[in-house]
């Protein structure tokens, strides 16, 4: 098992719906929960992550703050034109510390993962880290 969601393993952000140059979406993939990407107002918000090659996923974990509902979609294509839903969850509100939520998705093959935040506990939400336990093909 490796963490496939690290920029050091060739994983990239291909789209983020908000951008503050001080808090770029690449902060999600640097393995450090002290840096983050922040949304800059209104919902929904989304981030699309591209893996270097097909990854067989076991577990996806997100460290975030004030996210209320998250939907995860995936595809196995080379582009980002179509996605299919894989998971949806309402997070608990955690005042004063980060939210940590895991999604068990055993054996799911993906080239892209799309994280859609449909609602927040505040106007602005942050995502600090996403880890993807899986095996790269």
């Amino acid at each position: 098992m490796i963490d496939a969601a690290l920029s050091s393993s060739g994983t990239q952000i291909v789209l983020a719906s908000s951008s503050d140059e001080n808090y770029p979406p690449e902060n999600i993939l640097n393995g450090n929960t002290e840096t983050f990407w922040i949304s800059t107002g209104m919902f929904p918000q989304e981030v699309i992550v591209r893996f270097r090659s097909l990854v067989k996923i076991a577990l996806v974990t997100m460290h975030s703050y004030n996210v209320k509902t998250l939907k995860i979609e995936k595809n196995t294509l080379n582009d980002t034109l179509e996605f299919e839903p894989v998971a949806e969850k309402e997070f608990e509100c955690t005042e004063g510390h980060l939210q940590t939520n895991s999604f068990s998705l055993p054996g799911t093959g993906v080239t892209h993962l799309r994280f859609i935040i449909t609602a927040g506990y505040d106007h602005f939400v942050s995502v600090h880290r996403v880890t993807v336990d899986g095996a790269q093909e």
Binding site: Y23, E34, F36, Y65, G96, H123
Partner: peptide, 17 residues
């Protein structure tokens, strides 16, 4: 007011890590 709120929230999030 919205902009000030954004800056406040960034401070809060920094203090969490």
């Amino acid at each position: 007011a919205f902009y000030s709120m954004y800056q406040d929230r960034i401070q809060v999030i920094h203090s969490l890590a």
